[in-house]
Design a protein around this nucleic acid. Structure first.
Lengths: 138, 138
DNA sequence: TTTCGTGCAAAGCATTTGCAAGTAG
DNA sequence: CTACTTGCAAATGCTTTGCACGAAA
């Protein structure tokens, strides 16, 4: 908890209670949540929390490079606490978003040499192994 | 024009005037347009056209594998007439979406082996070479 | 006739904006 | 005091849905 406050201060972000709680949630839950998931999960502990504040906070985090925004589903944004560079897999069956390790040296290396690349995204869609398993068991 | 009708028939899609026009637009304009761009561009020639029909048609095309849907911007869907597999680059400056050739054998090869992959997407964000040029000339 | 496609209007959601009140340094 | 943050409410924008009309087989 102490470290989170420190982490925000280092990035020049005022460590308010809401921001610490949202960051804590993102670090503990690598489920690529929506704004609504974050809001609902924290509402118990932070009863005055509003979605606007969640949006504001995520915007600040994103601009400071603490998180990445995924547009994988097409209907809402998903938020991902940045760790090692990796890609994502969306299961069309259950909706889960699963981290996929990147083994290629680096995408930008082979993809382009003329544009200035600032973000590298990659994602896949299909059916996750859990859902495949369930289908087999029917 | 004749070929477009044929192309739709082969896919089992009833070749209505609206559908042919929308397909023609997508083939002639590889600009990854929004629904609104398609609608606005065709409204002159097809005055009775509605956005609902554009949505319906794109949905049919997508389900038949004629087009791909990009969620690169996060605010609206972009539609791409499927050609060779490739990735996309979004310029944060001018909003252009530029095709990026894929030189890696195939992403799914090295990314995962457990989930059933049905779609492979990749995209980059940054500043395109045109906008970089403009900055230099200032 | 029966099915399928079209398109208007309304509804649905995620996100953004305006703004007043609160809080920290 | 001053600047920033919060959060309610309203607005915005993209997409979907309900439904009636119309065209084609």
């Amino acid at each position: 908890m102490k470290e989170l406050k420190q982490l925000l201060l280092e990035k020049g972000i005022k460590p308010t209670y809401q921001r610490i709680k949202i960051l804590e949630y993102l670090i503990k839950n690598h489920t690529h949540p929506t704004v609504d998931m974050i809001f609902t999960a924290l509402y118990d502990k932070v009863p005055t929390l509003s979605k606007t504040t969640v949006y504001n906070t995520l915007d600040v985090f994103n601009k400071n490079g603490i998180i990445a925004i995924l547009t994988i589903t097409g209907s809402e944004h998903r938020y991902d606490h940045k760790m090692e560079p990796h890609h994502h897999f969306l299961c069309k069956e259950c909706g889960a978003i699963i981290d996929i390790e990147v083994k290629c040296p680096y995408l930008s290396k082979w993809a382009t040499g003329e544009h200035r690349i600032e973000e590298v995204h990659g994602y896949f869609k299909g059916v996750c192994k859990d859902c495949l398993q369930k289908e087999e068991n029917k």
